[in-house]
């Protein structure tokens, strides 16, 4: 059983190497362009295998869109223009990081809005609990008297009855 364990382990550990799909060797004019390219293919979605970005996908379309991205950058387009080009053809869904616009407003500020509501609820609850434990003046007065009384043990039962 354990005879082949090491071999199997090695094979399993090598598997992730197969997952990196973007293997084209593109040349860039400068390091900035290469960074732009890598950022773009990480942020653009492959529509064939949704939930994968262009850099992680081995689909034909992903390869074509990587080529398109590279070409557009080489032609002097800036990353925003590439994003605009893709959105014009494939819609907002192509973006992993949605743009801040009217129909994505809820997406962007929704979580903060919910966090504010949660904060407000927590503060309200704490305030209410503080109000519950806050004694009124007469109770405070009685508490002070009881504390001031050095030997309360004798009349404790009678006081209890008074209540």
């Amino acid at each position: 059983m354990f005879k082949y364990f090491r071999l199997i382990l090695v094979c399993v550990l090598l598997l992730p190497g197969l997952a990196s799909a973007a293997i084209e060797a593109y040349e860039f004019k400068d390091a900035q362009m290469e960074d732009d390219y890598n950022q773009l293919i990480n942020e653009l979605r492959c529509l064939v295998c949704q939930n994968q970005n262009l850099s992680g996908s081995d689909a034909d379309l992903a390869r074509d869109l990587r080529r398109q991205t590279h070409e557009m950058l080489m032609q002097g387009n800036n990353p925003d223009q590439v994003v605009e080009y893709m959105v014009a053809r494939y819609g907002d869904f192509v973006l992993y990081r949605p743009q801040f616009q009217r129909n994505t407003l809820l997406l962007w500020i929704g979580p903060f809005f919910l966090a504010l509501i949660a904060l407000w609820l927590v503060i309200r609850k704490i305030r209410r609990q503080q109000e519950l434990v806050k004694p009124d003046d007469s109770t405070m007065q009685r508490a002070k008297e009881l504390l001031a009384d050095p030997l309360p043990s004798d009349d404790l039962p009678s006081k209890k009855r008074d209540n």
Binding site: L47, V48, D60, L61, D64, Q68, R89, Y90, G91
Partner: peptide, 13 residues
Amino acid sequence: LDGRVGIDWGVYG
């Protein structure tokens, strides 16, 4: 042939 018109038309499936 190379799918460029496809990209312009937003073809993905």
